[in-house]
Design a protein around this nucleic acid. Structure first.
Lengths: 196, 196
DNA sequence: ATTATCTATAGATCTATAGATAATGC
DNA sequence: ATTATCTATAGATCTATAGATAATGC
């Protein structure tokens, strides 16, 4: 039953990728080790040859999710024809993102649960968030570095909260209304004068 | 072991109050029926004399949490000396709220989990959210009803997302920076022109 | 007599581990 | 010989239920 080194590395990647997706879809406790391993075509006993614990997988899955999201954001910024913030807002506050939690931003899916995770997971999230704010700050106009960072934080908070609210109801009209209203408010955040 | 009707009603209230608090602190799956009953001074078997299922308690706890929050918001609006939106923003984006998830807004605590709850729970949340937006819309300046509602949605999304991000890190400086940046951006949202 | 609560337990999870199996790679 | 995976299971949950107990309230 032993496999080649390459196969084993593939298995590991597959487990992390499944976890990154399923955790965002169902929460950290919404899928167990056994089902994740089944998705990778393995038995759950084999899990502990790859990872020391489920907690370790949670950490790796968060890093993976951040890397994937980062790549998407960079692409949206690079391909934006007009204002990059507006392009990011449309990308984030889209029906596509609303429907696909598994491939989307971790905060609307797992925001509440992250607070209850062990320190190592929270540290991975903090690093990812800081990198993200740097990326977003670069896409926002502002006189000083500090202004751009503040605007990035405010804009990102709007987007995250907008998705949380839009996903919390099954009323499609209300969801659409929320996504639209938050989208429209983004320029106001980007244009607001920095209060010293 | 039978108790008076009044005592039983008290027990019921105590269970719902504990649930409303603990669910916000630990998530819906973070506390079980047995521990909730222990907090009310009862055994877990007695639970099913009060509620048909844990799901029913989740629904009742959400209604309770919304009622409590609503009362707090009304108080803040009534007692606001300047701009009520600014007062609400300071109240919501405070260190006090950051530290006390159990008595705070349900969305930063349970936002991600609500999507995965059964319809009856989501319906309770949708009703609560709509009432909330009505309350907030009344505290925001704007020419038309529609404008006020849009601004209310955008402002609330900012606050919710700000708290999600602030709670997702253990770095106190980053948390404080996020709460401050989102607070400062609120006037920009309230002042933004409605895009037709 | 009725019923709110308690004791005890069924049945279904879940994480993690121990030892067996079989294929890689020296 | 080493080791990635598998089988089987320990031990700890959790929701829900059945039947016993004892106090209320007719």
């Amino acid at each position: 039953m032993k496999v080649t080194k390459e196969k084993m590395a593939e298995h590991r990647e597959k487990i992390i990728a499944s976890a990154a997706k399923r955790f965002r879809e169902r929460g950290f406790e919404g899928i167990g080790v056994a089902e994740l391993m089944k998705e990778a075509g393995l038995t759950h006993g084999a899990f502990y040859g790859h990872f020391a614990s489920k907690e370790e997988l949670v950490e790796l899955a968060m890093e993976r999710a951040f890397r994937d999201s980062n790549a998407k954001w960079e692409k949206v910024i690079a391909e934006a024809e007009g204002d990059p913030l507006q392009a990011l807002g449309e990308f984030y506050l889209s029906l596509r993102h609303w429907k696909n939690a598994g491939t989307g931003c971790i905060f609307p899916s797992l925001g509440g649960e992250i607070t209850r995770q062990p320190t190592r997971v929270q540290n991975a999230v903090t690093e990812g968030l800081q990198r993200f704010l740097g990326l977003l700050g670069g896409a926002i106009r502002g006189q000083t570095e500090e202004t751009r960072r503040r605007k990035a934080i405010a804009a990102y908070a709007s987007m995250v909260g907008g998705m949380v609210l839009a996903r919390s109801t099954k009323d499609p009209a209300l969801s659409a209304e929320i996504l639209e209203a938050v989208s429209e408010a983004l320029p106001g955040i980007a244009a607001s004068a920095p209060t010293p």
